[in-house]
Computed example of a mutant assay.
Amino acid sequence: MATSPVPDQTPCRSGPLLDHLARRVRLRAESVLAPMGLRPRHLVALTLLRDRGGSTQQGLASMLEMDGTNIVGLLNDLEATNLIERRRSPEDRRRHVVVLTDAGAKQLAKAEIALEAVEDEVLCALDREQRETLYELLQRAAAGAEVICVERVED
């Protein structure tokens, strides 16, 4: 029976490591966000809305890679707790623009403080400069993935 040759060096694949770290962060994040009535997907949506100054429902669904039904459910959760507001788009009355409320901005700030401790725990092997580098690289990767996602929606 022939065996596959074993490479001298294992290829560097980021996916499994990112998945492992994401799971650890997600599990810890869920435990600190739950008392605030938030889930990680809520936090991502709130962060995107803050950073972009709002978004259409369709645009937010695209950025979050969620279908229309799921984005409505997510937005209903956030709207029920007054963290976001849906407004008719002035350019197209058939569309809704989703914006962060003042209460949403305050809740997001509290959540980010709580998540700082989670990151300290999960990323304890990295010093401050390494964490900043990691953050910058992840932002760049996320921006590249977003461009691909937007291109798909426009096609």
Rank of each mutant, 00 (worst) to 15 (best):
A2Y: 09
V6K: 12
Q9V: 15
P11H: 09
C12G: 08
G15F: 08
G15D: 15
P16E: 07
L17A: 12
A22K: 08
V25R: 03
R26G: 07
L27N: 11
A29T: 00
S31P: 00
A34M: 04
M36W: 05
P40I: 01
H42D: 12
L43A: 00
A45P: 01
L46V: 08
L46H: 06
T47H: 05
R50E: 11
G53E: 02
G54I: 04
Q57D: 06
Q58A: 11
M66F: 12
D67C: 05
T69L: 13
T69I: 10
I71L: 05
I71N: 04
V72G: 11
L78S: 00
T81C: 04
R87K: 03
R93Q: 01
R94N: 02
R94E: 01
V97R: 01
V98G: 01
K106P: 02
A109W: 01
E112D: 07
I113M: 10
I113F: 07
E116T: 12
E116I: 05
D120P: 01
E121H: 09
V122A: 06
E129D: 14
E132H: 12
L134M: 11
A141M: 15
A141T: 11
A142Y: 12
A145Q: 14
A145M: 12
E146M: 14
V147R: 14
C149W: 09
C149I: 13
R152P: 04
R152H: 13
V153E: 14
E154Q: 09
